[in-house]
Amino acid sequence: MNRDEIILSGLGGQGIILAGYILGKAASLFDKKNATHIQDYGPEARGGACRTQVVISDSKISYPYIDNPSVLAVMSQEAYTKYSPRMRQNTVLLADEDLVKLKKSKHASLFAVPATRIAQELGRVAVANIVMLGFIIAITKVVSVEAMKKAVFESVPKGTEELNMKAFDRGYSYGLEKLKTVKGEEK
């Protein structure tokens, strides 16, 4: 049984929940796998630590929670401090390098991306979550690129599709480049 357990985390307002939703939707509707998406809900949505859990599996998912993620993406220092202790030996850690100060020596499989800076270059910091999604897909391949593109296109606010597709592509190609050069040994 193949079960991917992905935690996306950061601050309320960064679009973490939407990113998790898009990931789950892509896996479920377009890659035809089973997927569950859970959001931590409450005051966090308005500025505090924020987390979303996505489980993707070939078989039925009876337990939608993640104790030890196989993929952890962090977009804030607090999220890194809070969730990195939950990593397994082989957890793939992805981080926004401008927002998180990483203890690089501790992680066997670490990939960093300036997601927020790329989003700024594109003209809207709000698409940092989609840059991060592109990056995650390039590195981990938990969902197919085609499925992700469809899900991003359908799920972002009307009128922002083009910008978000661009953001996804930038994150994705940054990830492919990263794989060529470092292969997860950023130490």
Binding site: I17, L18, Q39, E154, S155, V156, K158
Partner: peptide, 11 residues
């Protein structure tokens, strides 16, 4: 065909 509904994506 999937249709979208006002306010249907999570905040």
């Amino acid at each position: 065909k999937r249709a979208t509904v006002a306010g249907s994506t999570p905040k």
